[in-house]
Design a binder for these strands. Structure first.
Length: 136
DNA sequence: GCCAACGTTGGC
DNA sequence: GCCAACGTTGGC
């Protein structure tokens, strides 16, 4: 696939918020310990768009990032993988989980159907919908 | 290789 | 803070 792909990663803002990410600009996305999530990390390519979701506190998609380094061994556990992400910008308005669940296009996202998956693909149609609903 | 027990995630 | 869902672990 040559066109860019879209992804979504989850993080608890009390652990690492999008605000912190914006200040740090680039971060290694480490700590993924789930095979399905790891496979998604491995499929990421430089330039792909990554949506940033605040789980637990916030429960909303809050920002946009970009893949700047493709998968490599996670320094915190070398048998797992990580990627580097660069923070791009916050969404103009955070997209609440309640809105996502109520939206016909977004309600089929793994975010809703597979609540424990922390790294997941997003379709182009879903990505457009996220940007539209968040007025970004 | 099955499956019960356990631990973790994350919405409520 | 509770608890359902579900992924992982470990005994057999």
């Amino acid at each position: 696939m040559s066109s860019i792909q879209y992804w979504l990663v989850k993080q608890e803002p009390t652990t690492y918020s999008f605000d912190q990410f914006m200040k740090e600009k680039v971060t290694a996305w480490t700590g993924v310990r789930n095979y399905q999530a790891r496979n998604h990390l491995r499929a990421m390519r430089c330039g792909d768009t990554v949506f940033f979701y605040h789980s637990n506190v916030g429960k909303a998609i809050v920002g946009i990032a970009e893949v700047v380094r493709e998968s490599y061994p996670d320094p915190t556990a070398p048998e797992w993988d990580c990627v580097d992400l660069k923070a791009i910008k916050p969404l103009a308005s955070a997209l609440e989980l309640s809105v996502i669940k109520a939206d016909p296009i977004l309600s089929s996202m793994p975010l809703v159907t597979q609540p424990r998956l922390s790294v997941m693909p997003v379709t182009a149609a879903q990505a457009r919908r996220i940007l539209k609903l968040s007025r970004t």
